[in-house]
Every structure is written in C-alpha cells, then in structure tokens.
C-alpha cells in the first residue's frame, strides 16, 4: 500500500519548488511534477499529466494529484476521462497546493493509504483557513517564571487545562510539559521530525492537543521559542513515547 503524488501546476518553478518543500519532509515518497504547457511556458499539458501519472503508477499503487489553478484541474479531469483505468487509482483532491502537497507527502511517507493521504491534503486548508485552528488565551496562574503562562484552546473555545510542571497522568496516560527552545518554534522542519518519529513509534501522541503525526496540525499550533508544550501519550508504550518527544524538544530538534 504505497501512495505517490503528482503536482500539476502552470509554472514549472512552482511545481519544482513545492516538490522541493515536500521532499524535505518526505524524502522517500514517489513525487512527480507535471507543469507548464506543451512548450514549457505557463500552462498545463495533458501529455505531461498523463506521462507523470503513468510513471508514478508504475512505482506506487495509487496517486494523489494536486492542481494549482482551475485549468490544471480541468486537465487532470480530462486525463481521468480519457483513460477508464485511471479513476480507481488516482485521486484529484480539492486542497491548497503547497500546504496540501506537504501534508500529503508527509502522510504518504508514513505509509498511509490513498484515503488518508487525500484527506490530509484536504485538511491542510485549515492551516490557511479564515479561522485559526488554535488561538492563544491567557491562563492565570499557569506556567513558570521562564515559560509564558499560556494555554491553548481549540477555536471552539473549549479549554485544555495546562497540566503540572512534570510527568503525571492517569492509568495509561503519560503527560509531560516542556519549553520549546528553538527560536522559530515548531516550524516546518521540526514538525516533520516529530511527526516522523511519532509515526515510527506507532503510539498515539498529542502535543497541545494536536496529533503529533500531523505536520500541519503541529505547525498550526504556532508554537514559538519559550512556549511550554504539553505532550500526552496513551497505552503501554506511552512513557517511552513521551520521553522520545521530550528529548526531541529539549534537543532543539537537532537544530541547536
């Protein structure tokens, strides 16, 4: 069960740049670009789309396609209409081009199936949506001297209580709080490092309520240097999983 990506864009530079971003976080994913018109100028080409799809489908089971502007979508739909074999293995998703490509690539890198990869691309619109996924509110009494007293709530307003300063938890739940040291916080590269590590562990972990295997959810936390994050895991491997993530955060995700 492997899923590849085809990026269909009017501009070769746009597709190549987006592929570069996605590959940084998902180096092993089959990722192809079909960009530019038949002469290489701005536009899209059915032949380029067909070639990219058939090349990708020789390597992977299924392909998720992202398109940049209306006529790129039309070109992909035409390719799907012309070849009746394609629609069962190719999914054109309604997703933001750059964010969707990154999210889909990271999900595919973790070995997810077609539905999950497509869904992660679609869900990526949350990172640029009109309503922030998470917003900061003041939490009186929480936090320590060197870490801001901040708790994050979902956009709905439902509060997530800030846990104690050290490891704690219920029967099978382990929680730790730790300040982020990186100047840029949990930006794209650290988020990808965490997402891959947690996916490899196979233990459900959340950071401030965000799914730690989702780069986009982690990035949308908007964590910056000095923010205290809450890491929570469940199950028999929870303690080890929390320790791994705490180690990554304290180690500055290898950036410091």
């Amino acid at each position: 069960m492997s899923v590849g990506l085809v990026l269909v864009a009017h501009s070769v530079m746009l597709a190549d740049g987006t592929a570069e971003l996605a590959r940084q976080m998902a180096p092993d994913v089959e990722l192809r670009c079909a960009a530019g018109d038949p002469d290489g100028g701005l536009g899209t080409s059915l032949t380029r789309v067909q070639d990219a799809l058939s090349a990708a489908l020789r390597v992977v089971d299924d392909v998720v396609v992202l398109a940049d502007l209306g006529s790129a979508v039309l070109t992909v739909e035409s390719a799907l209409e012309l070849d009746p074999e394609l629609p069962s293995r190719v999914r054109l998703v309604s997703a933001p081009f750059v964010e969707g490509a990154v999210a889909a690539a990271v999900t595919a890198q973790q070995g997810a199936g077609l539905d999950a990869v497509a869904e992660s691309a679609r869900a990526a619109v949350l990172s640029i949506g009109p309503e922030p996924v998470l917003q900061l509110v003041e939490a009186p009494g929480a936090g320590t001297a060197d870490s801001p007293a901040v708790v994050r709530t979902r956009a709905s307003g439902e509060a997530i209580p800030l846990p104690g300063p050290s490891s704690s938890g219920g029967a099978d739940e382990v929680t730790a709080t730790v300040p982020v040291r990186n100047p840029l916080g949990l930006h794209a590269r650290p988020a990808a490092v965490v997402a891959r590590a947690v996916a490899d562990l196979g233990v459900p972990v959340t950071i401030d309520g965000a799914d730690a295997t989702s780069v986009l959810q982690l990035m949308s936390l908007g964590t910056s240097a000095g923010d205290v994050v809450t890491i929570t895991a469940r199950g028999p491997e929870a303690e080890a999983a929390v320790a791994v993530v705490v180690g990554l955060v304290q180690g500055g995700f290898g950036e410091l």
């Binding site: 018109d37 038949p38 100028g41 701005l42 536009g43 899209t44 080409s45 059915l46 032949t47 209306g70 006529s71 039309l74 070109t75 739909e77 035409s78 012309l82």
Partner: peptide, 10 residues
C-alpha cells in the same frame, strides 16, 4: 486536449 494550454483545451 494535449496541445491547447489553459482551460480551453480540456
């Protein structure tokens, strides 16, 4: 479909 760029080809 394969030679007209833009939306017009599809």
């Amino acid at each position: 479909m394969s030679t007209v760029g833009g939306a017009a080809g599809p």
